[in-house]
Structures are given as C-alpha cells and as structure tokens.
Design a protein around this nucleic acid. Structure first.
Lengths: 243, 243
DNA sequence: CGAGTGATTGAACGGTCTCAATATGTGTGG
DNA sequence: CCACACATATTGAGACCGTTCAATCACTCG
C-alpha cells in the first residue's frame, strides 16, 4: 500500500515516527467512508448506538445544551481529529456532534481500533497522546472562559485553532480558512454573537488580526500571542517525541 | 491479602465488578504512601519529573495560572481520584496540583500501572472509564462557566461534588464535609470571592442549601437540582456496568 | 425579485467586579 | 490568658464588561 499523507497520519506522525506497517494500519482506518451534511447532528446526547470517526474533511463541533435553551460548544474538530472517543465507555453519548460544513469521515469500529493497537502498540500511545492533547485543549478552553476577557479569549481561541490546523497542513502563521459563523464562535466562547462582532472589530482596528469572508488572517502574530497569553509550547513540536 | 475497602476500590467497583485478583493488584497500588502539607504545590506547570498518584485522604485542586495573575481551578480531586493521569504523555506537566488540606496519597509508577493492566485488562477498562468520567466533569464545568449564571453554576458545582463524594462513601443527599474556602470556590467557578459570598447567602435564604463552617447541607435537594439543571444520570449507577 | 442567513451598529439594562470597610475565627507568642 | 497577626467571611457602593433588544446592511440562493 502506498504511504498516505492524510491529516490523521500527519498529526500522529508529529508525535510518533510511524513505520510502514503502522502507516498501513492507519490507512485501513480510512476504509469506511461516511458523508454528513452540514447542520444535521451526527450524534445527539443520550444516543445509545454510537460510533467513533476520524475526520477526513470538513469541520464539526461538539456541544451540550443547557436548560435555558442556550448551548455551549465544547470544541471543534478539524481534519485528522477523532470524534466520539471520550464517551465510548459510557452507556450513552454525553454530548451532541454537529457538522459545521459538509463532512467526510471514516467510521472506526471499536474492535478495529483495539485490534490495531494490539498489532502496533505505538499506535495506541499515539492515539492516547492525541486524546490527552484534546483534553488539554478543553482545559485551556475552560481557563479562557473562566479567567480571560472577551478579547483575550477570542484571540486565544483563534490562535489555537490556527496551531491545530497548521499541525495538519491546513494553516500557517499567516492565517487559515475558517468556516465558522460569529454565532458558532459565540456559542464556543460563552459570549453573545453581538459582542463577538465588536471584539473582532477591535482586534481588526488594532491591527492584530482579521476574520472576514471565511478567512482568519494574522497581521501581528507576536502581538496577538502576547495579548492572548497564548502558550505556543503545547502544540509546538520540533519533531516526533518518540523516534 | 485481605480485601480492602479504600475509596479507589469503592469507586472502580461502581463501574466494574472486581475479582479478588484484581482487588489484590489494586491493593498493591497503595503500597507507596506519600504525605503532603496543605498549600504547597505537589506538581507545578512545566515540571519535568512527574508522578501519578491515587488520593487516599484529603482534597487537592488542579489549576492553571493566567497572565494577569489570576488562576482557574480546573477540578478538585477527592479520595479515590487519580492525580496527574492526563499529562503523563506530555514532556512536562501542563497544570499545577495543590493540596487543599493535608493529603495522603499513593505514588503510582507508570510501569506498575501498565503491568497491572497487562495482568488484569478489566482494570485498564475501569481506569479508562474513570479518566473518561473525569473529562466529562471538566466538560460539564466548562458548560457551567460558559452558560450558567452564578447561582446555577455554584449550585451545580456543589451538587456534583456531593455526587462524587457519595460515590466513595463520603457524602449523602443530606450533605458533606467540604474544606474549601470561598476563595477556592471563586477560583474554580470563574467568579470573585465577594460574589460567591452573596450567591451562597441567596441560596441559603431561598432555603435550598447552606455552606458554612466546612459543611455543605442540602435543604431542598430536588429544588437545587432543578435550579442547577443538574443531570443525575452521569454519576448515578445502579450497579457495575461490567459484571 | 424575495427570503433567509449572517454581519454590523446603537442604546439601555444588568450581572458581576473592584474597592473598601467591618466582622469573625484561629493560631502564635508573650 | 491576653495581645496580636492573619486568613476568611460579610456587606455596601459604584464602575464596567457583556447582554438584550432592535434596526439596518450585505450576501447568497431559490
């Protein structure tokens, strides 16, 4: 099988130097393609029959709803990310998953995953690392919402998305394509869409960055990192941690 | 070896029905006791040499600091909880761990953990479940801070702590002993200590609950659950999920 | 061309913060 | 046992950040 350059391979490859047999096993995980339209939940809270997926293209968001009718987006997933790993061990899914754009994803059977791990334990480590990194991002998100004001929070979030996309080859320090609406951004950052709009304007007028017409552009990367108190380290790798 | 009734055994036992050999392996994890005074960090951000621990007695908090000098407490750990599992795969710890009270904990070597899993795979499942549950709590915390007002947030948090403590035999629907100061509560809930004080007074005057002199008392459990939009399901088990 | 979605801006309200002062409790040293 | 320092809890007053409501604009798609 030809060595592939999928987002998943690129991401895990940043952590573990992958051998040919390992690449081959990963390649097989892309064998069960599924397609989902934007805006229709792939998984909803309380759903019993669940699957895990690897995102091939498109963006999705994971969210929970609250009594008042609002919702909190916990995280977005971009190509190369896993979906639904966390609640595999629960009786029912504990959150909703909604595609932000049209999405192509590969369904991963749990048995397949376990089997892959048995034959290539280093893959298990790589996936665990990816899961730990996901949780670290949720934690950083929590810190943002709890202790940063709207500007810092917004800047931090868009920087982090940039770092993740860069890891899978979909972004640079110049910017990236971003299909999120200001409403989605608001639901993710615990702010109102109106206020997001004002904050984006302030950031633009300060010459730090812009987010318009589906594209995030960093105009003063260092300044933005300083404003957001963004830690480059935890997404920055000089190369695989495991050779 | 005598079958033990430690908080860890009690918690994992709620998820997986544990056999004698499994209990014996768990018991051995309590073989490396350590003691820590209140207020002195056990682990700090960026620290390279890390250990994992199982909490035997006392409370600790995990937190991250932000530029302005503030901090956000991500979670508290109570007896039976693991410490430091998440960042095991990172080069350095990504958060601080501070004992809230004097703490007794057992150091767990990574090799020991892996070895235990090899000989008792069901233990691995149980620990993974515990880790997933921890992450689910962080997510719920995120939702609280993002989308609930101060009253709902405070009520939700104290209810969740109660549910966790009940799981290890340290609380009931009547209440529980709680060593947290209003400052710690504030750092956890993304509020100021002054406002926490007012919120606690409102909850008390509404006849819902009280938190005074180190003790949380639920006066109207159902009313509090309704106010907080608290989901009893995800911490509520009729018995082990795996027989 | 009309409808719907997303972006933008203004004005007023309100939840939470900050600053400040006063209790209350607890441990320490004299 | 008292005096004191120190942490924690409590309460008030004013300021500020972000919300809500409302209107207008821009763009896309039928």
């Amino acid at each position: 099988m030809q060595v592939q350059d999928t987002p998943l391979v690129r991401k895990l490859g940043a952590f573990v130097a992958l051998s040919d047999p390992e690449l081959e096993i990963l390649g097989r995980m892309h064998g069960r393609p599924r397609s989902f339209p934007a805006g229709v939940d792939m998984v909803h809270e309380g759903q019993v029959k669940r699957s895990a997926y690897v995102l091939a293209s498109g963006w999705v968001c994971s969210y929970k709803t609250v009594a008042g009718g609002g919702r909190q987006i916990v995280d977005f997933q971009v190509p190369g990310d896993f979906l639904g790993l966390r609640s595999l061990l629960f009786r029912t899914a504990d959150h909703n998953i909604e595609p932000v754009t049209r999405v192509e994803a590969s369904e991963v059977l749990i048995s397949e995953l376990i089997d892959g791990f048995t034959r290539a334990p280093r893959l298990a480590t790589a996936v665990l690392w990816a899961a730990s990194r996901d949780e670290a991002m949720v934690v950083e998100h929590l810190v943002s919402i709890g202790r940063r004001n709207a500007q810092e929070r917004t800047a931090h979030f868009l920087l982090e998305l940039g770092a993740r996309l860069t890891l899978v080859g979909l972004g640079t320090q110049e910017g990236y394509a971003c299909p999120l609406s200001q409403y989605l951004l608001a639901d993710a950052l615990g702010l109102s869409a109106v206020h997001i709009n004002r904050v984006l304007r302030e950031l633009r007028e300060a010459g730090l960055m812009s987010f318009q017409k589906g594209r995030v552009e960093f105009h003063d990367f260092a300044g933005l990192v300083a404003l957001a108190d963004f830690d480059l380290a935890y997404l920055d790798h000089d190369g695989p941690l495991l050779k």
